[in-house]
């Protein structure tokens, strides 16, 4: 298991190629990459604030929970903070398992939980000013299917 919270850009392709390498008992690798999207058409950049210490702790707990629910050979979470330009990678998760069902389910679980249980806050900066991104009820509802 690897949890990285960093300001720097990361290369999702290189991370994925290096992930779970050398383990010949793995039959499936699933990954998701979150990218900075220009929702309004006027986004100049996005700021991500986080809670140092709690962030790593929460992400680790979420990964550990995934490992108890599914048979996973490895789990990777990378999440950035600081300034994102449109098109920049924000975060990625990758899961590896013998069979694809575990890797798919665990990746979705990780995404659902880290959206509303990991202490990150997004702020959109546009030409008109800046605004904190509001949490969506649908993100909270997404957790219900795992309970």
């Amino acid at each position: 298991m690897r949890v990285l919270v960093q300001e720097a850009l990361f290369d999702a392709g290189a991370e994925l190629n290096a992930f779970a390498k050398g383990d010949t008992d793995i039959g499936a690798v699933v990954s998701f990459t979150g990218v900075t999207r220009d929702v309004s058409g006027g986004l100049s950049r996005m700021l991500i604030e986080h809670y140092p210490g709690m962030t790593e702790r929460a992400l680790t707990q979420i990964c550990e929970e995934a490992q108890t629910r599914w048979s996973l050979a490895d789990v990777l979470v990378i999440h950035r903070f600081g300034t994102m330009e449109p098109g920049d990678n924000i975060m990625m998760v990758a899961t590896a398992s013998r069979h694809r069902a575990d890797a798919f389910a665990a990746a979705e679980f990780l995404m659902d939980y880290l959206k509303s249980r990991a202490p990150f806050w997004k702020k959109e900066i546009t030409a008109d000013g800046s605004e904190w991104v509001a949490a969506k009820d649908s993100d909270e509802d997404a957790l219900d299917r795992w309970s």
């Binding site: 990991a118 904190w132 949490a135």
Partner: peptide, 10 residues
């Protein structure tokens, strides 16, 4: 103790 709005990660 920390206070904050609902989180918006991912």
């Amino acid at each position: 103790v920390a206070f904050f709005p609902p989180m918006t990660g991912g």
